[in-house]
Design a protein around this nucleic acid. Sequence first.
DNA 1: ATTTTTTTGTTGACAAAGAAACAAAAACAG
DNA 2: CTGTTTTTGTTTCTTTGTCAACAAAAAAAT
Lengths: 154, 154
Amino acid sequence: MTPQQQFEAQLGTLIDKLTLLSKAQLEAQLNGYKAAEVHTIQYIGDHPTANVTQIAKAQYVTRGAVSKMTQRLMKRGLIQRYQKPDNKKALYFRLTPAGEKIYQIHAQLSRGFQQRDQSVFENVAPAEIQATLAFLEHYNQHLTQEITKRGLEK
Amino acid sequence: MTPQQQFEAQLGTLIDKLTLLSKAQLEAQLNGYKAAEVHTIQYIGDHPTANVTQIAKAQYVTRGAVSKMTQRLMKRGLIQRYQKPDNKKALYFRLTPAGEKIYQIHAQLSRGFQQRDQSVFENVAPAEIQATLAFLEHYNQHLTQEITKRGLEK
DNA sequence: ATTTTTTTGTTGACAAAGAAACAAAAACAG
DNA sequence: CTGTTTTTGTTTCTTTGTCAACAAAAAAAT
């Protein structure tokens, strides 16, 4: 197995495991709210001046998906829509108090995830972590080039 | 930003970029076949003795999803269902010649992805790669423990 | 200033996946 | 063996997302 193949394999299982763990936690704590809903609430909470298109790009989904999701969240009273006086087309969103509550619970869960894995970052040699970060950066740079080369950027 | 937060951020964009690139490639080359279909064909090709439950566990989806997908692939003549004489319940699958063709195209594409990123693994210091692999292993070990602790294993 | 092009958001038809309820078969317990 | 429990796969309903066609508004071109 080449290092490249090893990397792919390790990355694959890592993602699977992180997904498994966070999904279970989210479901347990945010009963009644779906993962995609919470995800959008979190993004709007962090970016209260983002319009539909920007939310879509950031979450790697289509504008249609965001349009439907924001309508659903409005119906459930979790977000509010607003516009700026100088533009009748772009739509922006902010959290209602009810949405804010979800946002806070999610933020707390995120802190929990971080604490859960903190020991790994504390007990591994700092050089190993630094090398990993450097490598991921290198890989990301390469992929950015490839994306540009193919004209696939968002 | 703590190293842990940096890691999360780098990992997030890495995954987004890899997804973007491979999706575009798959769609371009395997026109008419969805990513999920190809994924299942590939798994069946590699594991011709896996039943529905095993396919589901390996791909982190529900048995229902696999049930539907295999039915679809059968209708399209890409896979065949078979049973073992001593068990009337478990279902197994193998590729038809048409499915084999998809499998081969996918395999070729995978080699293409590998070549696309090969330069990263060639031009980065071996020590950096080794440290990265070591770190991912450490992280994976930790997550395995956490999954076991919570009784979430597949 | 008017026309053309691009951006922005929505909609409807459809595809993929999850969850829960279910039936059939297999495994197990006594 | 017989009855109970577990495993296996399917089905229905719901959630989430894509895609493509569309209308309205904004931006760019001339």
